[in-house]
Design a protein around this nucleic acid. Structure first.
Lengths: 227, 227
DNA sequence: TCAAATGATTTAATCGTTTGATTGAAGTGA
DNA sequence: TCACTTCAATCAAACGATTAAATCATTTGA
């Protein structure tokens, strides 16, 4: 009598869709924390409260579930960053900076607070180190375009070339800081004293620090190329 | 006739020691890139040019090899950061800042240039997400102490409390940037254009950028607490 | 000086278990 | 009923571990 307990999923009217979602959720967690090959289909099914055969039925194979998980990651990244490039093009450097700060806060808040974000980040990281087709697709459809958008904002905020080497690396560093805190959380928590530090407090401190780091980086970029 | 080709190891006078080293090297690579459970003993042995039974013979078990890999990681981190706390205690903030910059450059140079660094970083990252005993030990013996040393330098360079929350997080962010670039290299290279960017050039750009980021972060910390 | 002996290391073969995938029967809602 | 979905049972392949035999480098005894 397996219960759909651990991989809590937004209940859907369609029970089949619920199974799909539960499998993807369980896949994100186990692929992310144990690696693709090490996560057995039995374990994934058990965590999702589904039968092993459901994986083959809904996704064709274990690899199919992996692809579905990647799509879920892409969708959530899109949802969190939302309409980053939408709306009127920032008219002033100040507006661009505000938009950058908002994006950074959105990512930080989501990664630090949302319970499923841990699985998401872990999954993405696994795919990066394994360098397979899934990463290719994920980069082309999501990571690359989003990075270009952030570079454009950075360029507007600093008056520098959005596609300059330095700009691209600076944006990577900015994102890297956030991702790193999510991935390295077990280590960070040890150092910060796991006991008396609730997630909200950590998020607050984190956002304050990252805001400061962003301003510092932008100001430094402006100082280097004043005009 | 398996050859000890892929996992190149500093040849040792003792052939048994060479086997040990080859197994650790292969273990670092495969544990790091596929995860502990997914890396089979057969594959590790094949990559090391050794027999499967050699793992049990030299390390007791697959888990024993994992511990040996962790010790190797600790040793190399110690070697790269060297005598971070040694020498005379920095007398001026400027000296402390220089020492911080040197540490950051050492880490960046090693991670970006040394061929085995990729396996090392991947292994460490896996252990962090899997959160087992190996991470506990690695944190207590290596990561934690080193982080405290860097915080002490940060405190001296900025005149702030070395153990303040902000200091500890800032140091994490600083290290995080470097580690992130090594882990995320596949993504970064895609964005920077894999083709015409040699590792040395990337390292140079990276160090320049990280130097600037460090100065910006330190100056921001000083500005906040003028005293 | 050199064969025999010794302990350390490596080898191929094998054990019981778990893996991903498949199957046909049973269950479910419209 | 009928299409869709889930289920328990089963398969060959690969897994970690173990074993006895083979091989290597050194030391021993005369």
């Amino acid at each position: 009598m397996p219960e759909r307990s651990k991989a809590e999923t937004p209940l859907s009217a369609d029970p089949a869709e619920a199974t799909r979602a539960a499998l993807v959720s369980a896949g994100l967690h186990l692929f992310g924390h144990k690696g693709f090959a090490a996560a057995s289909t039995r374990e994934i099914a058990a965590r999702a409260g589904a039968n092993v055969a459901a994986i083959a039925y809904h996704f064709g194979s274990k690899a199919g579930l992996r692809r579905a998980c990647a799509e879920e990651v892409a969708a959530r990244i899109g949802h969190v960053l939302g309409d980053l490039g939408a709306g009127p093009r920032p008219a002033t450097p100040g507006e661009a900076r505000a938009r950058l700060r908002a994006a950074l806060r959105a990512i930080t808040g989501y990664l630090a607070a949302a319970p499923e974000a841990a699985d998401l980040a872990a999954f993405l990281l696994r795919e990066i180190t394994e360098e397979g087709e899934v990463l290719d697709r994920l980069y082309e459809t999501t990571v690359g375009p989003r990075h270009r958008q952030l570079c454009a904002l950075w360029g507007l905020a600093t008056g520098t070339d959005p596609e300059a080497e330095e700009t691209r690396l600076s944006v990577f560093a900015m994102i890297g800081q956030v991702v790193y805190f999510r991935i390295g959380r077990p280590v960070v928590l040890r150092r910060m004293g796991d006991a008396g530090l609730d997630p909200e407090a950590l998020t607050r401190i984190l956002i304050r620090n990252l805001d400061a780091a962003l301003d510092a980086a932008l100001d430094a970029a402006i100082r280097e190329v004043p005009r």
